[in-house]
């Protein structure tokens, strides 16, 4: 296809992506260097028969005037990045000097909002991604062995979790594990502990969110693996059966190497999706014990008094850096393959 034709065909979608994905990233980058204005204060002298008092009040007029003139806020450089709510360089230094043991230091650091969110996000990725791959693969293998007649309904049932709106899915599970919900009440009976609640403890909340994540993401892995299994050539499998290979040996030495590229693809996509974990936290109302990077940004953007653009933007930029680190190995490999292919 000639360059000119390509240009006209690709222009609409390219424009949409540049305007609404490329530019916002740049806009976020710029915003992250600004912080909201301080309120302008003035001294007011108030005199009554008993004497004069000087009080400090917010000068509403001047404050709103400055906000109007420079809506972006005041220039802050990397100030937002290093403040207490983000990288907290100063606080970490202080903790390092003040704490006695390393454990105590780690404890203090992980209580800072950014690190707390980072640790939750990474834990979530670390537990959900491998389990999604494993569960998806097992389901795909077993469904592949089922007779064709009942496969259709089974597949439909398996992909349901993926279709359900994430917020709705997590809400339903949240209601089920409520002390009066079906799972919550049964757990209390099973454990013989009327005060047992999955919502009260931090660890249990994390486990619930992770299980929800596995439930929601496994169908994607399953469907892709299932499709890949259809392309596995039958001859080597049959030869292996004749040679007396067990079921596990056949999977390990024939099926897995064949679908290996698909496994990396699924791992990449689910890593991307897990890194942005957000809706389950809203659905489970788990803000108290589990905060992700995405949730931190959301929290800044729905701030009641004034939207913290700078703070949200700084967290966003660091999230993007995180994504870049996750994607780097794959991108480098693609580039190398591309160069050798030429």
């Amino acid at each position: 296809m000639p360059n000119k034709t390509f240009f006209w065909f690709f222009l609409p979608t390219g424009l949409a992506m540049i305007l609404f994905i490329g530019l916002p990233i740049i806009s976020t980058g710029i915003q992250s260097f600004y912080a909201q204005h301080d309120q302008v204060v003035k001294e007011v002298k108030k005199c009554d028969p008993f004497g004069c008092t000087v009080s400090i009040v917010v000068d509403q007029e001047k404050t709103s005037k400055i906000r109007e003139e420079k809506p972006l806020g005041k220039f802050n450089g990397f100030g937002t990045y290093v403040d207490r709510n983000h990288l907290a360089i100063e606080e970490i230094g202080k903790f390092w000097n003040e704490t006695n043991s390393f454990g105590e230091f780690v404890d203090q650091v992980t209580n800072l909002p950014f690190y707390k969110a980072l640790i939750f996000t990474l834990t979530y990725c670390l537990f959900v991604t491998p389990n999604v791959l494993l569960l998806g693969f097992i389901i795909a293998l077993s469904l592949n062995a089922v007779t064709r007649r009942i496969r259709g309904p089974l597949i439909f049932g398996t992909i349901l979790p993926m279709i359900v709106t994430p917020l709705v899915g997590s809400l339903v599970l949240f209601w089920m594990i409520d002390a009066e919900g079906i799972i919550g009440a049964n757990l209390q009976m099973l454990m013989d502990d009327p005060y047992l609640s999955l919502k009260s403890s931090k660890t249990l909340t994390w486990i619930t969110i992770i299980i929800y994540g596995i439930w929601h993401h496994s169908p994607f892995a399953f469907v892709v693996f299932y499709a890949a299994l259809q392309t596995v050539p039958q001859e080597p499998v049959e030869a292996a059966i004749i040679d007396g290979a067990s079921r596990w040996q056949r999977v390990r030495h024939i099926v897995l190497p064949h679908i290996y590229p698909v496994v990396t693809f699924v791992a990449l996509i689910s890593l991307m999706d897990n890194f942005r974990v957000f809706e389950p936290i809203i659905g489970f109302s788990a803000e108290g014990s589990a905060q992700s990077l995405s949730w931190l940004i959301y929290d800044n953007l729905v701030n009641e008094e004034v939207i913290l653009f700078g703070s949200a933007a700084a967290t966003s930029m660091m999230t993007i850096v995180g994504i870049a680190i996750l994607l780097a190995p794959v991108l480098i490999r693609t580039w190398k393959e591309f160069r050798t292919a030429r």
């Binding site: 360059n3 390509f6 690709f10 390219g14 992506m17 609404f20 994905i21 490329g22 530019l23 916002p24 990233i25 740049i26 806009s27 976020t28 915003q31 809506p71 972006l72 991307m272 890194f275 942005r276 957000f278 990077l293 995405s294 940004i297 959301y298 800044n300 953007l301 939207i307 653009f309 949200a312 933007a313 967290t315 966003s316 930029m317 999230t319 993007i320 994504i323 994607l327 991108l331 693609t334 591309f338």
Partner: peptide, 29 residues
């Protein structure tokens, strides 16, 4: 052409952007 390949890679990178980071870029403008 080569650029078709690179556009697809760029699209993959765009796919990886968490939606909330994009939203934080939209709100102010």
């Amino acid at each position: 052409r080569n650029y078709a390949f690179w556009i697809l890679i760029a699209a993959l990178i765009f796919r990886a952007m968490p939606h909330i980071t994009l939203v934080s870029g939209y709100l102010f403008p």
